[in-house]
Structure formats: C-alpha cells, structure tokens
Design a binder for these strands. Sequence first.
DNA 1: CCGCGGAGTGTTTTT
DNA 2: CACTCCGCGG
Length: 680
Amino acid sequence: MLDLKDKLNPSQLSAVSAIDGPVLVIAGAGSGKTRAIEYRVLNLVTKGVRPESILLLTFTRKAAHEMVSRASRHDPRCKHVDGGTFHSFAFKTLKRYSKALGLSNQFSILDESDSAEAIHRCASKLGFFEKDLKFPRKDTLQTILSMSLNKGRSISEILEKEYPHFVKFAPDIQKLKKEYASYKLAKSYLDYDDLLVYLKLLLEIDEMRKLVSSRYRYIMVDEYQDTNALQGDIAYLLAADHKNIMAVGDDAQSIYGFRGSSHKNIMEFPKKFKECMIIKLEENYRSTQTILDVANSVLENMNNKYSKCLVSTREDAGDRPKLNFFKNHYDEAEWIVDKVRQLQSEGLGLEHQAVLFRSAYVSISLQAELSKNGIPYQVFGGLKFYETAHVKDILSHLKIVMNIKDEISWHRVLAMIEGIGPKTADKLTETILGRTSLEDVLGKALNDKCVPARSAKGLARLKAFLKSAKSCDEADPGAVYDLALDYYLPVFKEKFDDWNIRINDLEALRQIASRYDAIEELLADFAIEPPERGVLRVEPKGNSDEKPLTLSTIHSAKGLEWDSVFIIGLIDGVLPSSFSLDNEEEIEEESRLFYVGITRAKNRLFLSLNHEGTRGGITQFNKVSRFVEMPNVQAGLEAKFALEKDGDDGIDLDESDGIEPFYDKESLLNAIINRGRPRF
DNA sequence: CCGCGGAGTGTTTTT
DNA sequence: CACTCCGCGG
C-alpha cells in the first residue's frame, strides 16, 4: 500500500525505512527533510508502531503539526503522534510527573519579562540596587542568568565575554541566582529555562526516565543544529534506554547561537550513539540553480567550511537573483509593493510571496506602505503580541483568578489601581500571599484600611470582578475574559493614550480565549507557544478572503519556503547586525542567517537595501552588507548599481525590469565617500 | 507614597 | 524612540 520508492530518493528512502536504532540525518536546505519526516512517521505507523509512542520534537508546534497532518492524509492514525517544542514537551511532562521532583503541578510559567520582574524583586531584597554602584538592570540580569544556563558557562565567563563592565558584580549575581531559584520554588514559578532544567532532572531519575521512555519509544528531533547543550542532554536521555532516535539537522543553518545552540550537538551525536547511521540529503528540490549559486557562495566565504554544496535537481536555471539599491526606505517599500502587485497580477498569489528581514523594525515602513495599498499581510517575529503591556495586563487578571499565589500578577494588577503604587502593592501582595483561598483574600486581605481613600473605588471594583470571575464557569474562558475586560477597560483607557489602537489586540484575544476549554490551557499556551502577532494583524482593508503576504524575520522563516522571496535591509549593521561586528563567530552566524534567507526562495529572489539611514534625526548613509560584497555572491546577482571598484564586471545592467532605484549624482557620491565609516 | 515630568540610556534574533 | 530611572510636588 505504501509505495515509498516512487516518492523518495534513495537517501530519503533509507532515512524513512530506518526503524530501530539511532539515525543522524544531515539535510541541506530544501532537500526534502519535511518529506522524509512525514514519510518516516507514516512508515513507523504502517509497520505497527503505536502513533502515541512517537515523539516529534520540532522548533514550533506549527512545524510538528504540519508534518503530522501531512502523514495523516495517508493514514489517519498518524494524528495521534505526539509533538511540539522542547519547551512544550517539558511543560506537559512536568505537569504529569512534577511530584517526582517534589514540585507542585500547579506551577505558573514566567515569560522573559515576568522573569526579569521576579529577578528585580530578588535583587532588591538583597539590596543590590541600594549601593550606589551601577548594578545591571533587570533585563540584563535576566539575560545573564539565562545565558549562563543555556550556554553552560559560569556567570563570570558570561560577564567576561559579554558584559566586561559588570565583571565586578559576579559574586553578587551568583548570590542573586540562588535567591531567584529559591524564590521561584517558593512561588511555584517556572521560567523557560526551568522547563528544560527540570525536565532534564526528571529524566536523570532512572525510574522516571524508564517511565517516560516506555511511553515514547521513537524519538525524532528536527532542526537539531539549533538545540543547545541542555536540549541535547534531554534528547540523549529520552533515547538512552531504547536508542530509537532520529536527529535531523543542517550545520549550515545554525542560527540560534545567541541562545546557546551550537552544531556541536550534531557533531557529537555519533559519539553519543555509537552505532548511529548517518544519512545525507543533498539534492535540493526547492530552488533554482541561480539561487543556490548565491547561497553556496555565502557558505564558501566563511572560515568554518561547510562541506555542503547545494545542487538543484531542477531543469530550469531560473532568473538571476536581483539586488536593488534604493535611495531611502520609502522608495524601497514602494518598489516592493509594486513588485508584489505585479507578481500577483501574473497569477502568483500573496501567499506564495514573502518579505524577510533581520530585525522586525526594518519592516515598519513596508508595513505602512502595504496598509496604504490595502495589501493584507501578516508579520512573524519581532515583538510578540503577548509581550505588549496591555495583553500582559489583562492576562494578569486571569492569572490571579487561577492562582492566588501568583505574586507577580497580583502586583501588576494592584499597582494599576489609581492611588496604589509599588509600595502599597507590595504590602497588599504580602498579605494576600498569606491567605489560602480567594474568598479569604477578598474578605480579609483586601480591605480599605491599607489603601488611600482615592483607591477605595478601584479596589472595590477589583473585588467585584474577582468574585464574579470565581463563580463563573471555568470551562468558559470567554466569559471570564469578558469580566476581566469589563473591569480592565477603564484602567486601560486611562493608562494608554493609544488605547484605540491597542484595543484590537484585546478583541482578538477575546476570540482566542473563547476557543479554549480552560483558562489554564490558555495561559500555558500563551507562555510557551504564543500566537504570532501577525496572525491577528491581518489587515482587513483588502479583499476579505485574500490570503495575506508574509512578512517575517529570517529566524521565524526557518523551515518555510515561498515562490518569491524578498530580503530587505541588506545593510552592514542590519544584516550582519551591528551587535555581531566585533566577533568573528557571530558574524558567521549572521551569514548563515543570510544563507537561510536565500534558501527559502523557490523561483525568485530579490535582495534590496536603501542608503538613506536615519539615526536620531541625522541622515546617514547605509553601507551595503559585506555579505553582498563577497566576490562570488556579487557575481551571482543581477545588481542595479555597480558600487565602487567593481566596474561592471559580471554585472548585467541591461534589464531594468521596471525598477526605478535612483540616486542623484551627489547622494551617490556621498554614499561612496561614506563607505567604510562605521555606522554606530 | 503616588505619579508626573525630565533626563538618560541602549537599541536583535526566540522558547 | 521607548523605556527606565530620578527627583520633586502634592
């Protein structure tokens, strides 16, 4: 019934047919990796493996879902395959077995800013902000602690490398680390890192590991190059007993070094699993050869050589990727809008096109231009929806209904009330935490005596909200949400000048909330796998049924593909990011990022930049990305302007293709003069 | 002790 | 430019 030979090449086939034992698949970009995973799941299930015993760890839940649903089309049993990110798997597993670690399973998840808040409280308690030294800020502290964990380095090492000016605080931060850890334990809080740390601890208990690995007999880990040491250990532990593990990855696409990931896990996989089978998927089914030529050149120019050289299986060479220079970001945005429209009129729907960028802010003027032209779009990456102040505000109200021990949320909710500031909120929170039930809190802890008179009204409203929320059906998150919104709305309007814009988010959130069966699930999902802001921000002005154009950071575009891809902001200081410029390793990561961006394109690739950068009101000239200037890369592109020395060697100026980039003589001159001048 | 206004700072990528 | 920190008036 399964005719695998027809659908797969020999390498894919061997990956798919491997059933027991460790397998490492090195899969180049566009080499049909998703397809291999899809068919392997299918093959396992067809061979009688229970789908529930297959665990598919991927980078996003979307990716897991995609592979599972494709496999399910061939065999509906595949739907029961378990999958998700390391973090969501950790959450689920800890919910189940937290008792083994002596933890309550009623924990709340702290996202990054909650965690920073908690760290701030701990640091204040230790008096670190009182000394008139410049102790690091809470976000910096959070980053330092998290980095130390994810990179497996001591706090001193991290400080020396990344924050040399803070080295003298190493002992204090060490103390803070302990304080923060015990704080979290006391409050039943887990931050993102704890999810992994505790999962690893759990799996190190022989009995528990046996339990978990008898449940999951077949482990598959996608994007293995982007796992960090902790995740590598978890993968190892999951498979330690049965050795049925397949890791899939591509060392050339490792782009999460900043989070402690490294392709080391790929390198070490064969050492950890001795008889491991190694399979390479090298043929590229996705892109035209001209696109791959540029991608290959990017890799060639790196010091860390990658053996890979992508070869297209496609007959058509395709158009040469284009490089366009624009005077400023308005022109760039306008041109992209025109081009997108043009492609659309040629029959290429918006859903087959994508605009990619290094950092979200680069896309702001494009977003404005798209809206102006009624082109629907969705943005992936950048500031998350759930990180905005108003969303965090309203979620805090739901959190305290669910968990009266949630100190951070209580504090946030109380301090919003008129007349209650940080101090009073502290005091109130403290008395609240001594109580065991919400009734108790409403009756005794929250009384008017401890707040100024002008806060009485707000406090009474809060109590009324909590009372009705508690009596509300917990299985109806929509109803509870409405109550919270009712309460929060006046506060919200007072707090934000731009509330009329932000209110869209709160309404979108209402829709999402009503889709859940329990508030607890909603809150967990929001912390661990939050909806992308973009999904909610589809511009409604266009034709309502039109599928939107994708705007995405390159990071968030990982694993995806489009017919036509625009990569904007090819500026030194943007891609590569200015933060990476003094560090060889980081620049290499940036170039892999460029590589990932390029290899998303199937048929058409447009690179662009604009020269008129603005910084603090002063106009500066942006210098073209060093990646584009690399010799073979430039040769592979059809550029609109020959810059500087190159003359017209290998550059084809004939085809104007309706593009109107421009410079007048003077600004071009300026651009050239300013080359080499550091931007920051 | 709250909350406002001014000054100063650092500014990416994600679970 | 947005967020945080600081100092002052109420």
